[in-house]
Design a protein around this nucleic acid. Sequence first.
DNA 1: GTACTCTGGGTCATCTTGTCTCATTAATGG
DNA 2: CCATTAATGAGACAAGATGACCCAGAGTAC
Lengths: 201, 201
Amino acid sequence: MAEAKTASRRVDARVTRTRAAVLDAGARILFTDGWNQVTHVRVAERSGVARATIYRHWPTVEDLLVDVILSYPSPNPVGKLTGDTRGDLVRETARFVRNLQRGKLHEIIVTAMERASTGNRQMQDMHAAITGISRGPIWAVVSAAIEAGELDPGLTEATTAAHTLGPLLYLRLFNGSRVSRRHVEASVDAFLAAFSVSPGS
Amino acid sequence: MAEAKTASRRVDARVTRTRAAVLDAGARILFTDGWNQVTHVRVAERSGVARATIYRHWPTVEDLLVDVILSYPSPNPVGKLTGDTRGDLVRETARFVRNLQRGKLHEIIVTAMERASTGNRQMQDMHAAITGISRGPIWAVVSAAIEAGELDPGLTEATTAAHTLGPLLYLRLFNGSRVSRRHVEASVDAFLAAFSVSPGS
DNA sequence: GTACTCTGGGTCATCTTGTCTCATTAATGG
DNA sequence: CCATTAATGAGACAAGATGACCCAGAGTAC
């Protein structure tokens, strides 16, 4: 994904500027007006870049969206692990939920999912990227706990996310609920109850 | 919602026919070509009803979609409960997953969620209806088990669905996985491990 | 400085969406 | 069975979005 940069000629400074202006405007539109407002026309208006130019760089809206999303800095860095598995899990899960409930992340995730479900490859890749970013910190905690012998070594990243984030995403996306800290703790505790390496058995 | 039927004059037979033809065509389009193909134009083509007529009955696409979805017979009747909580839960959950993985239900759910997330009231109501239908059987099993003293009496329908269906929906919708019977059993077992009224404590 | 490339702004064709009109046809109530 | 009433069908029409194209002008690289 990072070829054609050292091999070929340097990128024209105008291209760099255009890309930056467009992606910035695209991100602003995405996070304020929502997903379906990110069109060539609106991005052109807000970025000052001509419509034709945007079409040249991103022939389809999907191309544009994918670049906007993937060029956006991840808002989900892994925090430092304290070794207290439950505490770390609750903290990281709560942070995910906070992101989910503030701003447009909710809508972005849902729309990415919807676009991905129609079979569009680019949208599927982007959706996978968002998914991966969102569950990275939780998997960091859990994989450490697995190595420490606290959790079921059969756990995968997907299964972990399914049982920690799954219930919370259900509450938020299907049930329309606000997800409280109590919900987060309940979800984490249920996960731990099910997948802890119990000394008793 | 059921007024203007006994009070006013009977419904014209032509209206009945038009509604039936349109909703039938709409459902067929929905389940074969997907959600965003359900437009006035396509429904008109496939139903033989004139575009103008469809616009008269359903001014917006949302109106049309809501009627198509809500008039469709629920594919999710509650099975008979055997009293074996785990067995009943696995069976009902597996059936939900089967529906989810066959045909367009996946896409329908995801799109309903996406539309609902934009704030449209009708779409939210419809999404809530779909959600309710999908988790009804599971709640039937669980509420019986609660009364039998097997499960935590603090469980609600939403929480139950979150912990049984949530992980599976995550795997399917976020992870893109095929959900196997093993996944279903793992999810049910995790739920039971977390919410059983344990005799030991 | 010159050749090259990108951009801007405009035009144009096309598709979709939704409204409106009017003649035709079917249903209702007596 | 007939007259009134209401619904339908077909098409025209406006408005808006989408995407392709062209060409002059300006910036960039060598």
